[in-house]
Nucleic acid binder design. Structure first.
Length: 285
DNA sequence: GTCCAGGTCTTCC
DNA sequence: GGAAGACATGGA
């Protein structure tokens, strides 16, 4: 049975913080709702007491894709229990107890994070938005919305673009990296589905064969798209968090920080990382 | 104007 | 193996 709306029951879920926490770059606040696209379907999401209410622009036959994206079946309490019981971690969780990890499409996630290097989140959003408007498939217009929505452009479509066209989306020196990645995926030199079957180290190495993809971006893709919960992306915010929160007295070497990132945070280190990241970005001062 | 942003790669000691 | 600079662009 198809319908245009559904309620996904869930508790401990801060929808706004989750969609605005730098994992995804295409969701926009619309009053007290959030507008975005999963696959080729536009959704308008609203948080209610019972869970997350979703409305689609067209009848949806199978809601599993949205359910998967939002990870509403994840037992967050069980994950939080695995975090180290120390003051920084407690503070980070207390600051946003319903923060979640989403489960994105690998290609969209990979492409977005290739575009993320040394860019502020607000600028990544702008670049991704331009890319989708210019190269993404046009979708059925959302209800009562002024502008059309677009799917994230396929690797084939981006591979067919010129470097100059991509640079026009404000992505600067990242354009050749995106083009290269699109060609590799479109030409099956890199099979993003095959990566699901690899272990963490092998999957990471596979992604890092791409130009413009180092350890940090690979970890973002492994965590946000493939669900490798042990992946722990270390960016400038996390470096700062580890330094300030765990080594306030003395300066720790980058090597020491990375060692801690790999050992201290347990089997769901990636979740812990997201809490620390959000905590650092949103705290006062 | 200056600094810096969910980095990566190259070069050089 | 680590430090330094280049790379585009724009927000703060």
């Amino acid at each position: 049975m198809s319908a245009t709306e559904i309620l996904l029951p869930v508790r401990d879920y801060d929808l706004a913080a989750t969609l605005d926490s730098g994992q995804v770059f295409r969701w926009r606040r619309n009053g007290n709702a959030w507008d975005g696209v999963v696959g080729k379907q536009f959704f308008r999401l609203t948080q209610t007491k019972q869970g997350i209410h979703a409305r689609a622009a067209a009848p949806v036959v199978n809601w599993d894709r949205l359910r998967e994206f939002l990870q509403t079946d994840t037992d967050l309490a069980a994950i939080l229990k695995t975090f180290p019981d120390d003051p920084p971690m407690r503070a980070a969780v207390a600051a946003c107890p319903g923060l979640r990890l989403l489960r994105q499409e690998p290609w969209e996630c990979l492409a977005s994070f290739i575009l993320s290097s040394t860019k502020q989140i607000v600028q990544i959003r702008q670049i991704v938005s331009l890319l989708c408007e210019r190269f993404g498939e046009r979708l059925a217009p959302p209800p009562d919305s002024a502008h059309a929505s677009h799917a994230f452009p396929s690797p084939e479509r981006i591979a067919a673009a010129s470097e100059a066209e991509l640079r026009d989306c404000k992505m600067g020196f990242r354009a050749p990296s995106l083009l290269n990645a699109a060609r590799f995926v479109a030409g099956s030199q890199l099979d993003l589905e095959r990566i699901r079957a690899l272990d963490y180290a092998a999957a990471r190495a596979e992604l890092m064969t791409l130009r413009g993809v180092g350890g940090k971006i690979a970890d973002c893709v492994l965590l946000f798209a493939y669900g490798f919960d042990s992946a722990f992306p270390v960016d400038v915010w996390i470096e700062r968090a580890l330094q300030e929160l765990y080594f306030p007295r003395r300066r720790a070497s980058e090597k020491r920080l990375r060692q801690m990132a790999a050992t201290h945070f347990g089997p769901h280190a990636g979740y812990a990382q997201q809490y620390l990241f959000h905590y650092m970005r949103t705290r006062r001062g």
